[in-house]
Design a binder for these strands. Sequence first.
DNA 1: TTGTAGGCGTTATCAC
DNA 2: GTGATAACGCCTACAA
Lengths: 341, 341
Amino acid sequence: MKKKITLKQIARELDVSISTVSKSLKNSDEISVETKERIKAFAKFYNYKPNNIALSLKNKRTKNIGVIIPDIVHHFFTTVFRGIEQYADTKGYNVIACVSDESFDKEVINMEMLANGSIDGFIMALSAETQLKNDYHHIKEVIDQGMPLVLFDRVTDDVICDKVVINDFEAAYMAVEKLIKDGRKNIALVTTETYLNVSEKRAQGYYRALKDYNLPLDKNLVLRLPFQYEDESISENFFRTQKMDAVLCVNEIFAVRCMRLAQKNGLSIPEDVAFIGFTDGILSRLANPALTSVAQHGEKMGAVAAKMLIDKIENENLVEEEIFRTEVLESTLIERETTNN
Amino acid sequence: MKKKITLKQIARELDVSISTVSKSLKNSDEISVETKERIKAFAKFYNYKPNNIALSLKNKRTKNIGVIIPDIVHHFFTTVFRGIEQYADTKGYNVIACVSDESFDKEVINMEMLANGSIDGFIMALSAETQLKNDYHHIKEVIDQGMPLVLFDRVTDDVICDKVVINDFEAAYMAVEKLIKDGRKNIALVTTETYLNVSEKRAQGYYRALKDYNLPLDKNLVLRLPFQYEDESISENFFRTQKMDAVLCVNEIFAVRCMRLAQKNGLSIPEDVAFIGFTDGILSRLANPALTSVAQHGEKMGAVAAKMLIDKIENENLVEEEIFRTEVLESTLIERETTNN
DNA sequence: TTGTAGGCGTTATCAC
DNA sequence: GTGATAACGCCTACAA
C-alpha cells in the first residue's frame, strides 16, 4: 500500500524545508534549477498531488457546488443535473448531490450540512413540501451568510436570488393554442393536486388560451391527480364520464397513463383525442403513439444555472452590489404522433 | 450579511481562549457551568457550526463518498444512486456524483480529482470504454493508496475489491426458461454491440437455457444493437426478416423499441410474440402492453454498495487483513402483459 | 477551571 | 537560494 505522500514527507526525505518543496513544485524561480529538478522528480515518482482539503481550508474555496433536487429518479431533474455536472466539470468544480425527497426537513438538513464549509454555492429546486409550507427561512439564511444560490424550475418570489425557469405559462398557452387551431373544442387539463408553482403556471396558460379563443372553461375537464399516484380509479372515471377531444398533461407520466385509459375506452389517438405532455423524455419518445410534448431542455437549464452560480462564486469580491437575474428559457413543442401534423 | 462565525471570533468576543470555547461547545466538564452557558448562548445566537473542511483536515475524514457512474439520465443508474444517497444520508455522509459519460478519460480524471482528499471512498460502475480498453490502472492505484472502493453492476475480475452485482446469468436463464415453458420455440435476443460485462452475462444465460432445453441456437435470432442507437433500420430489418415468437431484450429501452417494430409488422403481443426486458423502470410499467421485465432492484444495490463502503471506511484500522466480498443480489421477474400468465 | 501549544497539509510572507 | 513562521479552523494533550 502506497499512502498518499505529503510535502512534509518529501521535505524530510530530501532533507530540505517544506517551503522549498512547495516552491519547487510550483516552479518558483526562487529555487535553483537543480533543486527543483530533484524535488520534482521525487514528487513525480511518488505521485504527489496536493491535498484538496488543505487547499480548501487555506483558500476558503472548496471547488464543490451543492445541488439539491426533490427527486433523482425523475427524467427532468436528471437532465438538469447532467447539465450542471457537465458545466461544473469544465470549470473544475465537483458536484455534491442531495435529494430532498420532496421533504421540507430533508431539504433543511441537507442544506445545513453542506453550508458549513463543504461547498461554494447552491443550485436547487424547491421540494413540494417547502412550496406548500411557504417557509424559506433556511434558504434566506444561507444567502444571508453570503453563499451564492441559484434556484431552478421550482422557484419562489419570496426568495431574492438568481433563478432559471422555463416559460411554463407561454408553453402551455402555445400547446393549447395548437390544439384549438387543430379544431379541438373540448380540451381537458390533467395537473397535480398539490400546489406546485410550475403546474400552476401551466394551468394558467391553459385557462388563458381558452379564454382568448372564447372557449368555455369547463371545470369538469380539469383533473387534479395526487403527486405520486398509483391508483388509476380517479382518472379512469374521468375518462369514462367526460367527453373531450384533446388533453394537456403537465408531465409525461400523466400523459402516458391517460393515453392508456383513453385507449382502453376505445378512443383512438389522435383521431378522437389528441394529447400533449410536458417534459420531453424517453417516455414521450417511446410512447405508442409517440407523444407530442413540451421539451423543457433540462440540460440547458442545468448548464445555465451552473454558469450563473460559478460566475457569482468567482466574482464574489468584485461585484459587491447584488444583482440577481432570472433567466427564462424557451421551451419547444416537439410534435409527434398524438397531435395532428 | 452575517458571515459564519468561527471559534476564534467567539473567543475574542468573549475574551476567553479558543480551547475554552471549543470545550464548552462540546459540553466538556472541564469548564465551569457558568462559562459554558455563556459561551453556548453566544454561539447559539450567532448560529455557530463547526467548519466541515477544518474538521476534515483534522480528522482525515471527509464524510463524503464519491460516486462515478457512466450516465445519469438512465433509469437503472439513477435508482442505484438514490439507494446510495439514502443510505449515505442516514450515516451522515454526503455524495459527490461524477458522470463518466462512458468515457475512460473522464473516469480517470474524475477519480484523480476526488482521490486527493475530497472523499473517503468510491462507489462506481465502469464506463463502457473502460471495459473495452480493459485498463484499470487508475482504479488499482486508488485502491493501492488505501482508499476503499466498491464496484457495482459494471464490474471486472481484474480488480480485487468489494463488488455488488445482480445474478444476470441466472436472471436471463430464468426469463428464457419461462418463455420456453410458455411454449415459445423461436426466442430472439436483442443485446448491445460493444462488450459490456452485464450484457454478455445475460447473453450467456440465454444461450445456456436454449441449450439445456435442446433448442437450437440460431445466430440470426441474435441482434446486436449499438450502444446509443437512434437509427431503427437495423432492427426494423431484423423484425421483418426473422420469424420469432419471443424476444429477450437486455434493457427496457430496446424492448419498448422492438415492441413497436413488432407491432408495426402486424404482430400482436403477447399472442404472436412475447417480450421480456431487463431494467424494470417506468418504461416497462407504462409500455403498452405493459412489459414483463427483470427487476434489478437498483435502490437495494445502491444501499448495499453504500453499506459495504461505509463499513470499510469506518473499520479501516480494525480490519487490517483485506477481505473482499462480492454481493450477488437476486433479481425478480415482474410479469406483466407481454408474456402469458 | 482555563489556557498554551502543536498539528492536520498547504501557501505566502519575510528573514537569513 | 533556502528556510522559518504564520495562517486557514478545529481539536486535544498537557501545562498552569
